[in-house]
């Protein structure tokens, strides 16, 4: 922990010495929008080790500039994070279910819309603000109360605001939003043989999401042409504050009951956390973008992942050259 904080302070100090960077954050959205009629494709993968298993989430995203100010993203999400059923004796003894083997499967889709409602552009700088709304539809048995729409843990909706300031080579961006996850139903196998599985409904906690991201254009020191490879450094802080879940057991049966939250394991209790993600980005020929980042835990508590989390993203824009 102390080491992480030391690294973050060091990076912030290094960044702070320059008045210049970029806003193409590996893990956060900037307030800027996609050029009109441009189509972007992004492949993103997040990996971490959980006991003896490697957990991976990979998504493929299509991004389109509907207007100069309004962009939409459609994402298909796959992962090996989720099983068909809830764990045995959920939620009492086996939550979260560390190291369980889950098949790699298609989780569902995520739809995101961002509208840039404020722009103040200057020479080599801009201040922009945007509002976003998102929705996810997945069929997954997520085991922790912390909701996640972008990576396909929950069905639900969310919205928020983004503010981004960019001056020469330096960029800073903040996001504040909320997630309203939907209720989920499923079965938890009964530990006693021959007994039917226990039907469960879980209402995951509502969450506030927040992030603060810094970016710095390291190379080139001076622009000459589009073929110069850009190298950007990033430091992102992001996290959530989430509520305690609500779990009903034996749903639809005579003995259905609401489980008092005091009996929940910590993974279903409300909490907050802040993660820190240093990252590096390469932009080749002013279009092909390769993001590499690692996420470390900083503050608070989360049970939805183990650290470090390694992320890689590859992105490219396609422009339609129709004359007008």
């Amino acid at each position: 922990m102390q080491k992480n904080i030391f690294i973050s302070i060091l990076l912030l100090t290094v960044f702070g010495q320059y008045s210049n960077a970029q806003e193409l954050f590996p893990l956060s959205e900037a307030a800027s929008s996609i050029p009109k009629n441009a189509l972007g494709i992004r492949l993103f993968s997040e990996t971490y080790k959980e006991v003896d298993k490697i957990r991976n989430m990979t998504y493929l995203r299509l991004m389109y500039g509907v207007t100069p100010r309004f962009s939409v993203y459609l994402t298909g999400i796959t992962s090996n994070h989720h099983g068909e059923n809830f764990p045995v004796e959920f939620p009492f003894h086996n939550t979260p279910e560390r190291g369980a083997k889950y098949p790699y499967k298609f989780n569902g889709v995520h739809l995101y819309g961002k509208y840039r409602f404020f722009s103040r552009d200057g020479e080599n700088e801009h201040l922009r603000m945007a509002a976003y709304a998102e929705g996810t539809l997945v069929k997954t048995t997520h085991h922790e109360t912390e909701p996640d729409l972008e990576y396909g843990d929950n069905t639900g909706v969310g919205a928020g605001l983004i503010g981004t300031y960019l001056k020469n080579k330096f960029a800073v961006s903040g996001t504040f939003g909320g997630i309203l996850p939907s209720e989920n139903s499923g079965d938890s196998p009964d530990p006693i043989d021959n007994l039917p599985p226990v039907p469960i409904t879980i209402q995951y906690g509502k969450a506030l999401t927040y992030s603060l991201s810094f970016g710095y254009l390291l190379l080139p020191r001076k622009y000459k042409d589009y073929n110069q490879t850009n190298v950007n450094l990033y430091l992102e802080f992001h996290g959530k504050a989430y509520q305690t879940a609500k779990v009903n057991l034996f749903v639809g049966e005579a003995n259905e009951y609401y489980l008092e939250s005091v009996r929940y394991p910590p993974a279903l209790q409300g909490n907050y956390f802040v993660d820190m993600s240093p990252g590096v980005q390469f932009i080749i020929r002013s279009n092909l973008r390769i993001d590499c980042a690692a996420t470390f835990h900083m503050l608070g508590t989360t049970y939805a992942r183990l650290y470090p989390v390694y992320c890689i993203g590859i992105q490219q824009y396609l422009f339609f050259h129709k004359k007008r």
């Binding site: 970029q22 193409l24 801009h126 254009l217 932009i283 002013s286 422009f319 050259h321």
Partner: peptide, 23 residues
């Protein structure tokens, strides 16, 4: 044309592409 808000080659390229679309 002078363009405000530009800070990177990717942004500059997207402006160029939009201008080149003009007949």
């Amino acid at each position: 044309v002078g363009i405000n808000g530009l800070t990177c080659s990717q942004c500059s390229r997207s402006v160029e592409i939009q201008l080149r679309k003009l007949s």
